[in-house]
Write a protein that binds this DNA or RNA. Structure first.
Lengths: 191, 191
DNA sequence: TTTTTTGGAATACGGTCGTATTCTAAAAGC
DNA sequence: GCTTTTAGAATACGACCGTATTCCAAAAAA
């Protein structure tokens, strides 16, 4: 058998380059050619790992979802829920270059998903996982009656803040104030 | 002088068709040609009203912003702020075909604005207007100390819910529950 | 060393894109 | 009625797109 290569690793590299490209230049600058160039490959090489552009996009969307779940798993669930939620959201918002890159890609995919069933399914799965985790955090701290509703509200709040930060970085601090205010309201300190 | 036409009205027609197209097929299906076809015009005719695609997009974004402001102006500000905010948000969320069309276009523009300074400026202006109006509503009802922060939180909440509804219409009712829960928390009934 | 299979580059195809240019027809002013 | 200006269609151009195909070099198995 001929020379072989860790195909999954190559796919991840390409997917990561795609996410980077989305964050820097926007989803509509993503093409097989631009992604290939971003990874120092030829377009033909990319085609060996993804048969279609769609497949490449879906893979990148799953990659982005995995990152969210990984960050979520890294939060200390022993913390009071208000602090745990705050910590998670602050790793999600575009507060520095890396976060911004990920948030940009994430939101671009979300909008794209409105007309793309496969991306929509991926997004829904991530949302479901996040919602379950947040609900569990809240439940375990005694916010029992409507923890799921609070979790959905927190997710929406986080996405909405991230979205606005993308095109209004000047309002960064102002929006962080709003975040604190909303968390205060949604998660009474009683815990 | 030759036959003349209400140019601004023509521009609005084209802009409206563009928004419809965004909501039905997504922003990356928008081209001079597809917009022209959607209005029953030739591409050349569209070029008479917008010198570039960019100019057409910016015009449509402003059109969408005007609609938001018009709906906002239509809310009875004499209502208790919780009810006024609820009313405004419910006219913003994609709860039926028309609202969905507008929300889709609005969010698509928002994400696009992350890499498009002109669209970003338009979005920021709309946000600023909405924020000021909401802050005034809250202030006038005695939620004085941090009304602006609450307004920002409400805007983020609304955008976040709308975004998720785009690709997860199944979760519609669940998200409306979250909306009520968040409003309860953010705007104490004392008002 | 030869064979076989893979990674990767190169090329080609039809299609769509944004935009500039050119043409036709109609309407307002003289 | 003729001229002038505009609305609108038609066409053309170069660029990029997704994808299929072809070719070549390299490495593992024989």
């Amino acid at each position: 058998m001929p020379r072989t290569v860790d195909r999954e690793e190559q796919r991840r590299q390409i997917g990561a380059a795609l996410l980077q490209l989305v964050s820097e230049r926007g989803l509509d600058e993503v093409s097989v050619r631009t992604v290939a160039a971003a990874t120092g490959r030829s377009p033909g090489a990319v085609q060996k790992y993804f048969r279609t552009k769609d497949e490449m996009l879906a893979f990148a969307a799953e990659l982005a979802g995995e990152r969210v779940e990984r960050r979520m798993a890294g939060v200390d669930t022993a913390l009071p829920p208000r602090r745990a939620l705050r910590e998670l959201i602050l790793t999600t918002l575009p507060v520095d270059a890396d976060r911004r890159a990920e948030a940009t890609a994430q939101l671009a995919f979300a909008v794209h998903a409105a007309h793309h069933p496969r991306l929509a399914a991926i997004r829904r799965q991530v949302d479901r996982d996040v919602r379950e985790a947040l609900t569990a955090w809240l439940d375990s701290a005694g916010h029992g009656t409507d923890a799921a509703a609070v979790a959905d509200a927190v997710i929406a709040l986080s996405d909405g803040l991230a979205l606005r930060m993308l095109y209004a970085p000047q309002e960064h601090e102002q929006l962080l104030v709003a975040l604190e205010r909303a968390l205060d309201a949604l998660i009474p300190a009683s815990g």
